[in-house]
Amino acid sequence: MNELVEFISNNLQLLYILILAIFIGVELIKNVPSVLHTPLMSGANALSGVVIVGALLVMLQAKPDDFLSLGLGFVAVILGILNVVGGFVVTDRMLQMFKKKK
């Protein structure tokens, strides 16, 4: 129990950010017309590619003789950037179709 209290007081700022971010996410999506659900899901998917930043940090900090970290990090960067580029391009292609008519 003490550990929990300690954890909370040490990470209070973090908790505020997390909770506010959760509410923003919910508010942004509520009341979106169902027409846009697929593009929205795809757009959110592209955003989850932000994990690439972590992969880059790993690669930047890896020692040149640490082949395991370098190798796995290399794959992590590829997968992350695939998620980012693929995600945004697919979303853009979907939205291309909502261009103004007539």
Binding site: A21, I22, V26, I29, S48, V50, V51, G54
Partner: peptide, 24 residues
């Protein structure tokens, strides 16, 4: 992973996707 690195953009971006995805 953002919490691990203390990286704000990963944390907030990830949570946004997490909550938006869940509501969707």
């Amino acid at each position: 992973t953002g919490i691990l690195f203390g990286n704000m953009v990963m944390m907030v971006g990830g949570i946004l996707v997490g909550s938006a995805g869940l509501i969707l």
